[in-house]
């Protein structure tokens, strides 16, 4: 785990200010098949390596962030506001 996370709103902050929800999963469309929903709710990839995770800056700006980091080396590749991440995800899906 990283010691410091660079919040896009607050800058470099200690990890103790954040709470972590785990792997980023796109919430399926309501009409998606049950299998898709099942995987969304219960199944996690738990990779050894690069992973995107939801981090909540609870003791800071209270924004949810998407932190892309390496579960093995702990290197952080990038931090995005979760709303911006979701918007880009939706846009990608549309294209």
């Amino acid at each position: 785990m990283a010691s410091l996370i660079t919040c896009p709103h607050c800058g470099s902050r200690p990890k103790e200010e954040f709470s972590i929800r785990g792997e980023v999963r796109s919430r399926p469309e309501p009409a998606a098949p049950f299998e898709t929903w099942y995987r969304y709710v219960y199944v996690r990839d738990n990779p050894k390596g690069r992973q995107k995770e939801y981090w909540h800056h609870v003791l800071g700006c209270r924004r949810w962030l998407v932190v892309e980091r390496d579960t093995l080396t702990h290197e952080v590749y990038g931090v995005t506001d979760a709303a911006a991440y979701r918007a880009s995800e939706v846009k990608e899906a549309a294209e």
Binding site: Y54, H56, R62, R63, A82, A83, R86
Partner: peptide, 14 residues
């Protein structure tokens, strides 16, 4: 509150 923030920000920012 965190639960609401999660759905508002990460799922339904629109």
């Amino acid at each position: 509150l965190s639960h609401m923030e999660f759905y508002h920000q990460a799922q339904w920012p629109e």
